[in-house]
Structures are given as C-alpha cells and as structure tokens.
C-alpha cells in the first residue's frame, strides 16, 4: 500500500520550476497579453508566484499589487513584499483598500460588523476587483497564487482570492510550495512563515483549520489517490473522524471550484457539454 510519509510530497523542484515558468510564458504568448498582475500579500504562495512569473517573463512584465487594509495590516508583510520584488526585479504597487472597504460596509443595508466571514470575503473580493481593473488597463492577465491544499478543502473566498486567469501553483500542496519557494530563492522567513488569508485580525490558517499543513497535505494526498479515510487514519495515526472531516470539507466545497451550475436545457450547454480548448483563433 502507498505509504503516507513526508517523502511522497518531496518535489523535484528544478523540474517543477521549469514546468511552471514554461506554463506562464506559454499562456502569455498565446493570450497576447503584455504580462501579469497579481496580488502579493507577503505570504509564501503569492511571493512564490510573483517570483516564478518574474523568472518566466522578466520583471518588467510582472506587477505585484499589495493591497493591505487597516484591520489586518502587518509590517512583516510590507517588508516581505518589498524584499521579494527587489530580489526578483518586478514592479510593486501598494494600495491601501481600507477606505474603499469602509464605503462598502456603509453602503450595505445588511452589513453586520460581527459577521467576520462575510466581511472577510468582501476584502478578498475587493482585492480581485482591483487586480482585474489593472489587468484590463494594462492588457495583462491576473495570475493567481492558490495552492492545492487550500483549494481542495475550499479554504478560500469564492470569486475572491482564487479568481484568476491562470493558477500556476494550484497543483502543488502547501508543503510543496514551501519547497519550491526555497529552491527559487524566496527567503526562509517568508517560505516558513505561518499562512494567513488576512481576512480578520489574528487569523492564522493552521489555527483556523485545526491541523498542520504537513498532516493536511498527507491526508489530501491519500484522498487524491483514492485511499479510504480508514487507511489514511491508520497510517497517520489519526482518529478516522479527523480524516473524514477533511474529506467532507473537500467534497462539500466543490461548488467553490467550479463555474456556476447550469440547468441543462438545450443541445450544448455552457459548463456541461461545451468542451472548447484554450486556443487562439
């Protein structure tokens, strides 16, 4: 039986770097865009995505947009975004979105300060709005930085941080992103810092999820390979309930990973049986 050990997540980082940079370059060339814009938060995923984009396209074709807001402002994030932008030579723009968010809160008749999830999702979606405005203005595409761990369990904002034209890291688990980050020269203090979506003060991903990424990634790796929760739990010496909870999160959040579900009414249907390749005409 497949052994769920840390080694199964060991990445061939050089090959992965080559595949991802080729993927980015190829998409930009075929889409005839002039480059990428991306949200850089100071975390490992976005710093790695920005660095890989820069390695693929050259820094002049990469714009990292840092979009802090007052509730979750963190000086380390500011320092880290600058550090990576300087090292990999891409442009960096900082826009404080606090005032725009304030306007939104006050424009919403049903706004509720205590509902931190709805409020947090608004922040993630606001960042998406800024990114796509820049992409339109500059004839660029939005490059996402979601990883596989968070995407699989639905730990993201629908139409928010996950919204992008391409997602080069989406097939890498968080622990693999960290390996790749170190391989391409992302400083250790960024590669190893605790992940946070920065949707509300003090939010830390592993605390909120109640599980370490090292364990979560092995559970997801097992589920990806059709192992049962019992088999995974036995190998990782975890309660079956814990693994089942991860599986439930994965399956219950499929709606977040797809386009809208369509009622099948006609001959060929968008989102169902239209299967059109990405290609230039």
């Amino acid at each position: 039986m497949l052994k769920l050990k840390t080694e199964v997540l060991q990445l061939d980082s050089a090959t992965t770097e080559a595949r991802i940079t080729r993927f980015i370059t190829d998409y930009i060339e075929k889409s005839e865009a002039t480059g990428v814009v991306l949200n850089i938060s100071g975390g490992v995923d976005s710093c790695t995505t920005a660095a890989l984009s820069s390695l693929a396209l050259g820094g002049s074709k990469v714009l990292g947009i840092f979009l802090p807001e007052e509730e979750t402002y963190d000086t380390d994030d500011t320092k880290h975004t600058k550090m990576v932008a300087e090292k990999f030579g891409f442009s960096l723009e900082t826009i404080d979105i606090s005032s725009v968010l304030e306007v939104c809160y006050h424009s919403l008749p049903v706004y509720e300060e205590r509902d931190k999830v709805s409020k947090g999702n608004l922040k993630a979606r606001m960042r998406m709005v800024f990114l796509y405005y820049y992409a339109n203005r500059l004839n660029r595409i939005v490059c996402g930085s979601s990883d596989k761990s968070e995407t699989m369990i639905g730990y993201f904002t629908k139409w928010g941080d996950v919204a992008a034209d391409i997602s080069p890291l989406m097939d890498l688990y968080k622990t693999q992103v960290r390996q790749l980050a170190l391989h391409i020269g992302i400083p250790e203090e960024i590669a190893r810092k605790p992940s946070t979506p920065r949707l509300w003060p003090g939010q830390l991903a592993e605390h909120e999820l109640g599980i370490k990424y090292e364990t979560l990634d092995l559970i997801l790796f097992g589920l990806e390979r059709f192992m049962t929760p019992e088999e995974i739990a036995e190998q990782l010496k975890l309660p079956v309930k814990r693994v089942e909870e991860v599986k439930r999160k994965w399956l219950a959040t499929e709606h977040k990973r797809r386009g809208p579900l369509t009622a099948k009414l006609a001959y060929r249907t968008v989102g169902a049986d239209f299967r059109i390749p990405y290609t230039t005409q």
Partner: peptide, 8 residues
C-alpha cells in the same frame, strides 16, 4: 491539428 481539440 494539435492533440486537445475537444469539440473542435
């Protein structure tokens, strides 16, 4: 034609 022609 290329490989992944799908509905084309």
């Amino acid at each position: 034609t290329g490989y992944l022609t799908r509905d084309l």
